[in-house]
Design a protein around this nucleic acid. Structure first.
Lengths: 135, 135
DNA sequence: CTTAAAACCTAGTTATCCGATAGGGTAATA
DNA sequence: TATTACCCTATCGGATAACTAGGTTTTAAG
């Protein structure tokens, strides 16, 4: 299950991407329009800014804005930033790999093989979708 | 992320399915062989039996056994029993649908559309795989 | 008939994480 | 210089995951 953090983050990104290029959007605007807790959204946007998806301007008339084209922002990258691994098991994760405590031999694990199939299919969908597809 | 419950359950099912048809397997055997806590596995197998995937015999010489062919047990069914929804959002779940608190209009939600794609792809993989493919 | 073995069942524990909130701090602008 | 709006840290309640405890019932064997 996708966390609300990720869901809100995607919605917020889509909201900002819908504006004129370079236009600044304030947290409060998104928060009200998308029904997201102001403070929670604040922390999410901060994460997205640090990850390089957004720029921010402080002070009066400030806000968040896109740094690049929506079509250049892949869903895989956003989800990995907010959610973490895309795979259904740590042992099949490309970016967050972790060995299982049980499983002496990964290649012999039946579940492992199945989850690799799921992962590859999910990745294919998420790689082919950019923020532009959400807008 | 798949819970350990589901992972263990799948491994246990595969273990039992590997035996001669109708052969009984004890919890302790699976527990030791697959490195799963005995008590935890106990509760998982109980769930699987109640869901109709396994039969059980009490008393000395008892154990769990397959009720049907491994090829008749779909991964979707097992995962839904142990894990719950397969979808990444409640609002795109076929079997566990739930409306989102935010989102006034589901059809207008950009994230919704994306997650339907992911769901359909995942379902395709899981529907095409049976327990026989794990063995 | 007794005993040991095995599944059954209810409930509780512990630990972690999610979603949200609090309360300032800091920088930019009018 | 006051206001606006992002920046940062800390905290907290509730839910859930993973596992544990301890007893009950059923069965086979001696």
């Amino acid at each position: 299950m996708l966390s609300k953090k990720t869901k809100y983050g995607l919605k917020a990104l889509a909201f900002i991407a819908r504006q004129e290029k370079g236009e600044k959007v304030q947290i409060a605007t998104i928060s009200e329009s998308e029904n997201i807790s102001h403070k929670f959204l604040e922390s999410i946007l901060l994460t997205l800014r640090k990850a390089g998806f957004l720029g921010a301007k402080k002070g009066k008339g400030g806000g968040y804005y896109m740094l690049k084209e929506a079509s250049e922002i892949k869903m895989t990258d956003v989800i990995r930033t907010l959610e973490g691994p895309i795979a259904m098991l740590p042992c099949v994760s490309l970016n967050y790999y972790e060995k299982c405590d049980d499983c002496p031999d990964e290649d012999a694990c039946s579940v492992h093989k199945l989850m690799i199939q799921v992962r590859d299919n999910t990745l294919q969908v998420l790689r082919n979708n950019t923020l532009a597809d959400l807008v």
